[in-house]
Design a protein around this nucleic acid. Sequence first.
DNA 1: GTCAAATATTCCTTGAGGAGAATATGTGCC
DNA 2: GGCACATATTCTCCTCAAGGAATATTTGAC
Lengths: 110, 110
Amino acid sequence: MTAAIALDVGTFAALGEPNRLRMVELLRGGPRAVGEMAEALGIRQPQVSKHLKVLGEAGLVSVEAVARRRIYRLEPAPFAAMAHWVDSFEALWSQRLDAMGDVLASLDDA
Amino acid sequence: MTAAIALDVGTFAALGEPNRLRMVELLRGGPRAVGEMAEALGIRQPQVSKHLKVLGEAGLVSVEAVARRRIYRLEPAPFAAMAHWVDSFEALWSQRLDAMGDVLASLDDA
DNA sequence: GTCAAATATTCCTTGAGGAGAATATGTGCC
DNA sequence: GGCACATATTCTCCTCAAGGAATATTTGAC
């Protein structure tokens, strides 16, 4: 029995800041060094480091030192936890999607 | 082709507050009036109303007036958007889960 | 060891947001 | 119309977090 990974509020709090969400979207394309992210996002390096610290404390990213650069990558666990959590809300929209299906069908007919 | 519902940072920001997350978890069990939520969570009514306002502005809840009470319920759309978004990260952990599968298998053996 | 590149940390200022208390608004009841 | 219940709004205080600028730290190159 896989103990469901607990979802932390901190995950949402960390992602609830625009620049941090952008950073996560960027890291979605693969690991990056701090400087690359700063340039790609048009944010000053210190801010990037600070946001990475927050993301790290939330467990969303991990670091690997390569030469004098630090490569950050997304950490799967919190995302898996989020997926599990939000999927448990599926009952919320599944019934409504039935009704919405009719609407979409009628649109397809047009 | 279903136009993917855009995920808003505000969704995370709204859920990134402990009491608001608790309120969402509570509403997960069905629609509730303000007073019920206040009592169930041990939060004063004005705070509940304020948090509901934030949740409403983020599109996470909707209201229905019944007599002199206001029934709040979860709104499916943002949760569906979150589910879609977080699922797009699946590639992140799917490979690692292969490796993790071996670990889990070895644990099962023990 | 010295210098330069890459990143982290500190200090400061400012603004946003949450809690508490009081009050306003709305709505049904008689 | 007046009253009581349910909810929303306002105000104040306070804490925290984000951005900017400067600086410290680490590490590689020579």
